[in-house]
Structures are given as C-alpha cells and as structure tokens.
Design a protein around this nucleic acid. Structure first.
Lengths: 212, 212, 212, 212
DNA sequence: TCGTAACCGAGACGGTACGTCTGGTCTTTTT
DNA sequence: AAAAAGACCAGACGTACCGTCTCGGTTACGA
C-alpha cells in the first residue's frame, strides 16, 4: 500500500516486521476528531471511526486500548496547546490568565461537550482514567506548581503552600459548573470570583503557613 | 396476583384500569440498589434489573425512561437522607458539618462509585441530567441558600451574597477530587481547607459587598 | 356503559351480574373484519382489535379462545353464505357450479388472502384447527355428500362411492394453487379441468365399485 | 478461532475480509433441524437456534433473512433427497412411486408437521414464499415434467398435455389431507386412488388432446 | 534473495443489551 | 357479574457494537 513509517513513535524498536503506518494513525485521529464533533464521545463507536478512516478495526485496537483513550488522544493535542503557561508577574495575574483561558476554550460547544464526556467516560474506562491522570492532570498539576513556585520565589506565598490544593480550589468550581449545571454561567466573572477567593485565602494564610 | 396500589403516587388521578403496583415498583428499586452495589451504574442493565425483580422489562420502561433515571431514583432515597441540614449557629460550623457529612457519605465505596457514575451518566442521558438538576442539585442549592440566609440574618454575611457561588466553591473541589483523582485524599482535612478558604473570602468581602 | 343484553345468546342463564353485551360482540367482530382486510390474519393482534372496538382485551378473551377462532368467526359468516348449494340436475353441473363459485369468491383478494391465512393459522392454533374442521370442513363435506347422494339416486354414480374422496379430489387442487403458487391461474378453466378429471374417474369406475 | 471456509459456496468471489465459516453454517442448520423436531416451526426461535448452535444471533441473520427461510434450508436437504425420481417404464408406475414415496416421507410425524408448518409459514413470510416456489415447487415441477415427457415419448400421453395440471391434480389432494384433516387417512391407498383418477382422465383425453 | 514477522483493510465471529411488541392474565372502577 | 381500561410477567424480535479472529496481501528487516 506504500506507506511510510512513523518517525517518533512509541515503540522505536528495531522491529522485524512491517512498521505501523503513519498515514493509518493520522486517518484514525482525523476521523475521531470529526466524529467527536458530530456525535460526542458517547455516540462515538470504534466501528464508525474505522469505517470513516477506511481502516480495519484491528488497526485501531492495535494502537489504542479503548475508545476512551483514542478520544483522549484526539482531543488532547488541540486542547493542551490552547492552554499556554501564563507569566504575568503576579500570582493573581497568572491564575486569572490560566482560568480565563480555560473558560474561553471550554465555551466552544464542541470542546466543552468533549471535555465533559471525557471526564464522564473516565469513570467507566480504567485505561482512560489512567491516561487522564498521567497525561492530563499531571501536566496541569506541574504547570500549576510552576506558577506557585514562582509566587513563592516572589514572596507572594509561604513556602509550604500545597499547590495541589490550589489546583483543586481553582479548577474544582469550574468543572462543577461545566459538568453539573447549564443554567449558571461559566464565564470570566466566575473565574475572577474563584481567583479572588483563592487570593483571599492566601492572604489569610489558609493555604500554607502563616502570612507570607 | 394480589398487589396493592401506590399510596402517595405522582398521578393521584382516579385512573381507570389497573393501577400500577407498588410491589412491582419496590421490587425494581430493590433490585436496582443491589445491582448498583454489585456492578456499578455502568454495568447495570435493565434486563438484569427486570429479571432479578421478577418483573417484565416493560414494567421498568413504563416507569423510567432510562436506566440513568432509574439508578437515580434508587440512589437518591438513601443518599439525601444521609445529608441532614446542619444548624450549628455559625456559618463556618454549618459549612463544615455539611461538607464533612458529604465526605463521610461518599467515602463509602459503593456510594462514592455510584455518585461518580451518576455524574458521568448524566453526561450521556439527557433525562437523567434533567432529573439530576431538578431533583438533586436544586434541593442542595435550596439547603445551601438556607445556611446562607441564616448567616445573613446573623450578620455574618453581606445581604447580597450569591449563595450559588458559595455552593460551587464548596462542592466544586470535592467533586473534582471525587471524579478526577484517586491519589489525593478526600477527607475531613480537605473539607476544612475548603471551608476556611470560603470563610477567608467572606471576610475579605469577595463573595458579596464589603464586610457586612 | 348502558348496553342491552343479547336476546338469543348461548348462556340464556338468568345471570346474576351484568349480562354480556351484544354491542360488544358486534363491535369486536366488526373491528376484526376490518383488520383482516387491512393487515391479514398474520398481522392481526388482539390488542388492536380490542382498541379499535373500544373494548377491553379481556372481553375478547372471554368470548374467543384465540385470535384464530375470532378471525374464523369474523370470516365464516360472509364466506359460507357466498357458497350456495347447487342443484343443476347433473353431477357434472353441480360440481362445476360449486367449484366455480368457490373460485369466484376466492379471487377477491381479501377473501383469498384470509382463506390462505386461515389454513395457515390452523397449523399453529389447535383451537382454530378444531373449529375449522367442525364448523367449516364438516359442513362442506355434508354438502358434497348431498350432491353425491343425489347423483347416486339419479344413477350417475355407484352406490359405494366415497364422497370424501370426491371432495379431496375437487378441492385439493384448488387449495394447492391457492396456497402454493401465484403464477398459475386459479380460474374457471382450472375448475373445469378438475371436474372433467373427476367425471372421467367416475366413468372409469375408479371412485366406487364398477360402472354404475 | 480455527474455522475452515465454505467449499462450494454461492459467492465464490475472491472476497475481501474474513470469509463465512462453514462450521458456523453447519452448526446453525444442525441446531435448526433439532429444534424443528422438538418444537415445530411455530415454536422455533432464532434466539434458541443461535444459543444451541453456540453462535451469535447476527451470524444467523447474516445468512438467512427470516426464520422461515432458515427452517426451509434445514428441512429441504433431508426432504428432497428422500424423493428420488422414479423410472418404472410406465406413467402409472412413475406416478404411483412418486406419490407413495411422498406419503411415506410425510407419514413421519416430524417431517409431516414440518412440511405443514412450512406451507403455513410461507403465508406470512414473503421471503420463505419466494424460496418455497423457486427452490421447492420448481424442482418438483421439473421432475414431474420429466415423467410426463417420458410418457409422451412412449406414446402414453398426447403431446400437448399440461404437466402442471398433472402436478396439481396429484399433489393437491395429498396436501389437502395433510393440511386440513387429521381424520382421513393419508396412505398408499389414497395415493392409488389419485393416480387412478389421473390415469382415467388421461385415458379420456381430458388432460391433453384426444388419445395419443 | 529469500523467509518471516508485523502490518494492512475487510469483514465474519460469539456475545450481550437494547427498546419494542405481543400474548394471555389479573386487578381496578364503573355500570 | 360483566364491562372498559390498562398494568402485569414473560420472552422473542431484529439491530447495534463490542473486542477478537481470520483472510489474502504488503512491506521491510535480517539471515
């Protein structure tokens, strides 16, 4: 069929047999992105992905252990690159930029629906749950850590502050509204209230030791 | 078959024809509770519910539009009654009691898994999503409103505080940990940090006007 | 609902409770005739009969043991009355009249389809099979016997002729074409061939003793 | 799963994809034959066939459009091979052999019941009706044609005789008794009467021109 | 240069659950 | 006690996907 091999793939192994085709992988991801937009993750079926990508089902299962992880891969590339690490010089500025960026990304209907579906699907797909934690939450946590570390260095925060709690306090309310309500607005104002709340807690020394 | 009618049902209507049997409804709910414990909501099937309840599938579909709503009904009764409305005399005490009660309930493995599954299922089942908002979130919101109202009356909070934001700030982080991580603890300490954060924001006047 | 009782019904009994309603029975039969025309006997359901007759299902089952027998009753009245007993003065004339009359009746699409369906349904419904034999075949047999008896009296047939064999030889080929083919014509010419065949057998003394 | 392909199948096509498995087809037919014997065609369900054959339901529906056609296929193989084409040297001998062979086969209770059910089912299943005409009646017609042709060549019959009428006259009465009565015998004597009747008609020139 | 290992698209495989439908029965209120 | 209404249990229907397994064939490595 005349296909090239994947340049920087998972198993770099000096394999014996025919190497996996990059074109197959791309076709699958492209079809998945399209179908996520059309049907959402719940309506996604491996069968339809394969047929739209003009690919055998086995070629999908050879690469991804479940439709959840496949959807995750298709979704992440575009999602993460839309969340640049802010560096505004103040903790408040950084948090505001991060949360408002998230809100802006998620207000796109397809993105919002897919993110909701991803969290949901992770409750029933252990493979996806693992990928979610290692390849999504962990990076987010690392980035938040960086913001916090910079703030500590600037003397805005006490040394012993728990970056993970900051993360939960910031993103928790956002995901809560994303997942559980349609009535209450998920907008920049809400993001601001969250940041103000966290900053007030910081000021009060709730999240670390005493007042910085 | 010797079945009684439903005492305080929805449609009281002096209906014609054989009324729905209370014993059928009870058997279905009992079977659903059992199976939720054994398999979780994702592994729940209407087929098995019906067969374990010794009931026709049609009798299930006659009452519930989807397995999500069925699971919701089976779950709610026991969940809500384990969340009594606290009245400790201070806002901080009320919030602490509410959140710690939630944490305690949710640390039961079956309850936690079911609650997670319910939020997830609501992303794919519109009927469940509607029931969730009207029959779960709305009562929770009303209860939180009451706490806030009492606090306003006591002068702990400014009059214009948004009770819904308080709710999101309190429960958001809890659900975030419940749904997204297994590593970080979902315990009383975490609940306390949340409440302290919200109280700091209250003190700082972030959630309403200035200090009351 | 304010209905009169049946004047000359089966159970004349000075009943205790509410007497069976003639209007109910008529409505059921009328609905059945309509639905036989619209859907055929295979597509007939007691549910739809009851709902169209604005009658409870139990009222149908109280009177008829199965949908087959119900259809039979609805069908027979009109079918039998269209098969008058011929008396032309010769056996050949009588047989020709009978077979041609049957053909004419059966060429009506609804009647033909229903008759086919009735024979078919009798293979799976024992109650209908019994009714069919006792209330349809037996009368037909008796009528044929009469034709044969008259022919014997006229000296056209030997005394020992078996009327049932005559019946099978005449109607067998007709039902065969009705049930098994759509290509070959079921018409007066075919009826004539059958009669000529039977008459030839009579002449040859095949159906009785020697030549009368 | 280790299955062979079908040796002499319909579509020999250089198919793509996994070819249908012969062992699956055999298992389905074997299960169908068993269940036809145990329950009859009316009691046959695709569900039970599949489960007894240890086969997915889809594998049944992939091959057969309805349970009628499936039953037909399961029935035909054994039925047709028990109806060898007679060649006794005379038309009377051939017809006698054919009809008596049919009677003998049909007197087996399972075979008789299945044949009855098949004719009945064909009234409600258009796919089966088509298969029945093309793959059962047509071969029978062709065989009868052959008997008649040989008789014509021997000068026993006029050239213009209609083989289809002969077929209807012979098999019509047999099917009539098979389907409509249980009281009158379906035996060799009845077969003989039928053949004698047809032969008398032949002698009398009823079925063709004058005597050849 | 050849064999073999891993890939490819296609599609059948054994399963399972879906939500609907019908059968024949049972229970309620009304007449 | 029979009426209309409609819920009851039971279980088959035909469809849709699941994740696996052939099939015939291609591609690239290593012997």
């Amino acid at each position: 069929m005349g296909e090239g091999d994947i340049p920087g793939s998972v198993d770099p192994g000096r394999g014996r047999g025919r190497p996996p085709s990059a074109r197959t992988e791309e076709a699958i991801l492209r079809a998945t992105v399209e179908l996520l937009g059309e049907r959402g993750i719940a309506g996604l079926t491996v069968e339809e992905v394969a047929s739209r990508a003009r690919v055998g089902k086995a070629s999908v299962y050879r690469r991804w252990p479940s439709k959840g992880v496949l959807a995750f891969d298709a979704f992440m590339a575009s999602f993460v690159e839309r969340q640049p690490l802010p560096d505004t010089g103040t903790l408040r500025g950084d948090l505001l930029a991060a949360l408002r960026g998230w809100v802006r990304t998620v207000r796109d209907p397809v993105t919002g629906r897919t993110l909701r579906g991803m969290v949901a699907e992770a409750q029933r797909d252990a493979e996806l749950a693992a990928a979610w934690r290692q390849r999504f939450l962990e990076p987010v946590r690392a980035r938040t850590s960086q913001l916090v570390t910079r703030a500590v260095e600037r003397g805005e925060l006490p040394r012993r502050v728990d970056a993970e709690v900051v993360l939960d306090l910031c993103y928790g309310p956002l995901y809560f509204r994303l997942l559980q309500t349609t009535e209450r607005p998920l907008d920049g104002r809400f993001a601001t209230v969250i940041v103000d709340t966290v900053m007030a807690a910081v000021e009060a020394g709730v999240l670390g030791g005493g007042r910085s």
